[in-house]
């Protein structure tokens, strides 16, 4: 468990606010501050990580000889990688429940702001995890590829199921529905490769 707080500026930016152009009225400003305070109370970030040094790239990518990824994009990403991290993060169910609650009560403004707050927070969580892994690998002279998630490019969202099982994301309370989407909604799954090759992007 670690703490996550988001700032007013981060949330405004997510909502499409432009410093030079957008003018906020006091009533809206009050609502936004209120929702940030609420959001910061509801975040309960959790992280699950798996890694594998056993990568086999043929027609498909095999991790640990079991987890199979059928994606040319992933093949390209992991080319020259000797290690792969799988990451699932979430900011928890309480936030999702509150967004739904606002929606039910037709408080769409509050729902939209809280939803944006959740998006900012979950991205912040995965960025923190990404940075920690990066720092750890850099110490050993390694560099990271960029992050890649099921549903990007030709890595099908269906892959999220095997990916989920490999990382063990159930342990942090993430559930996959029949369409391979995660609940809580403010969750992210991603894969990162580790390489010695500086030509691979970071």
């Amino acid at each position: 468990m670690f703490e996550i707080k988001i700032s007013y500026d981060e949330l405004l930016s997510r909502l499409g606010y432009l410093k030079t152009k957008t003018k906020i009225k006091q009533n809206l400003l009050n609502v936004i501050v209120e929702i940030i305070n609420l959001a910061n109370k509801l975040f309960a970030p959790k992280v699950a990580i798996a890694f594998s040094n056993d990568i086999l790239i043929n027609d498909v990518v095999f991790l640990n000889k079991k987890f199979k990824i059928k994606s040319d994009n992933i093949k390209q990403l992991l080319n020259n990688c000797f290690k792969v991290y799988g990451i699932f993060v979430t900011v928890g169910k309480a936030l999702d429940d509150k967004i739904k609650d606002f929606g039910k009560r037709r408080e769409f403004c509050a729902a939209a702001i809280l939803d944006a707050a959740g998006s900012v927070a979950v991205e912040k969580v995965i960025n923190i995890v990404n940075l920690k892994i990066k720092n750890y690998e850099n110490k050993n002279g390694n560099i990271l590829t960029r992050r890649y998630s099921p549903g990007y490019g030709d890595w099908k969202l269906e892959s999220n199921k095997d990916f989920y099982n490999w990382v063990g994301a159930k342990k942090i309370g993430i559930i996959l529905n029949d369409f391979y989407q995660m609940k809580p909604e403010k969750s992210i799954s991603a894969l990162i490769g580790v390489t010695k090759n500086y030509n691979t992007m970071d």
């Binding site: 152009k21 003018k23 009225k25 009533n27 609502v31 702001i113």
Partner: peptide
């Protein structure tokens, strides 16, 4: 459109 308003303001006006 001119970015003077952003999403929450649209929703409040809509309400």
């Amino acid at each position: 459109s001119s970015k003077e308003f952003f999403l929450p303001q649209i929703i409040l006006s809509a309400k």
